[in-house]
Design a protein around this nucleic acid. Sequence first.
DNA 1: TGGAAATATGTACTGAGTACAAAAATCGTG
DNA 2: CACGATTTTTGTACTCAGTACATATTTCCA
Lengths: 212, 212
Amino acid sequence: MPEPSDRRSRKRLATSKAISDAATRLFMERGFDHVTVDEIAEAADVGRMTVFNHFPRKEDTFFDRDEEGREMLREAVRQRATGVAPLEALHLLAHRLVAERSPVVEFSARSERLVPTVAGSETLKARARAIRDELADLVAETLAEAVGHDPADPDAHLAASLLLATWTVAFLDAHRIFRRTRNRENANDAFLALVDKGAAGLKAAMTGTPYV
Amino acid sequence: MPEPSDRRSRKRLATSKAISDAATRLFMERGFDHVTVDEIAEAADVGRMTVFNHFPRKEDTFFDRDEEGREMLREAVRQRATGVAPLEALHLLAHRLVAERSPVVEFSARSERLVPTVAGSETLKARARAIRDELADLVAETLAEAVGHDPADPDAHLAASLLLATWTVAFLDAHRIFRRTRNRENANDAFLALVDKGAAGLKAAMTGTPYV
DNA sequence: TGGAAATATGTACTGAGTACAAAAATCGTG
DNA sequence: CACGATTTTTGTACTCAGTACATATTTCCA
């Protein structure tokens, strides 16, 4: 994330952030469906059209950092150490993100407000599902690329779908544990326990392929 | 599906069917986004409000048979033969549906028009994903119930998510094969090959639980 | 400093979905 | 069969997301 030096990019970024911050705050306060785009624009002190200029849909003001996730997944597979299978690299990534307290799998006071905000809105849930599927497609293609297979390789798509499904269930369960116990370590443990289970299944499913 | 005998129910069903049929036809012809609710109402010869009376959202006029899928999944687990593990019952269900040429996994001229219709619309894809997640939740609860565990059992949710993910990938791959080879047997084989792979993974992931 | 390019904003529109009320069809019962 | 209750259909009026298009404003660069 290199801070761009020219004023134009800096201002654009500042405007985006103002909109996204205002929107996220309002969504957490009142729920996605009880906030209008006009109110977001008002709170961010911009015109209504500026919101749509930066974010094609209302829900994009909330989910505006999925590109970072894409980058992480791609890099984990491409920059993996020699001798590490593609799926193993992704499994290691999950463990590393937890160990490094990465924001994407963070269980904190903030995530405790964010998750119910998503859960409380069909639109936000739909967008979360869409992103999950987009990530699965990306992982599938990255896996296939890593072993020189066709991007449509069914095995790669099965592996990617199973992986994302596992991580999603693991994240939601860990969040549930965190809410119940208010203990980050418990949540991390629950997350990794399910991730490991899923990885074991994935390994078995992909036996005989170069992905594992 | 007992045909109700009273006129009221019959008429209501007929109206629903007229709307759903008209909508599906128009969506296939022109694409979901290029059909308005007014046009659906016009084609079904009802008032616009009648459409929303029968179907809360426009996309529900297309996906109006998901309850049957729910019923199948529930029954497969609940009515399983003694000695058959819950997940095994669901695996057998997949094979049975293919063997019996059930409409839900049918690869035909009709499905060849339906699938691209969904693929061509973000709204229909979103609804398909939502249904998939709803089915996964249902399967998770049914599995947990079958072994006397809490409905929120993480293992049940992981198993259900992996199962639905597998079936989805298998269905889409089989459809791709059918389009390419125009041979239903090829599609069935591709479907079952991936379902079996997923089942192998699922079995490994769930080792030590009563689900397998 | 004078445009060129990018960004911000306004106006006017389409179309989904909701709230509410009223009309029409159907049903149960005396 | 008739009449009141219930269900279904339909119309009207509204909110709000999202789009098309034009204009103004800001930033940049030669």
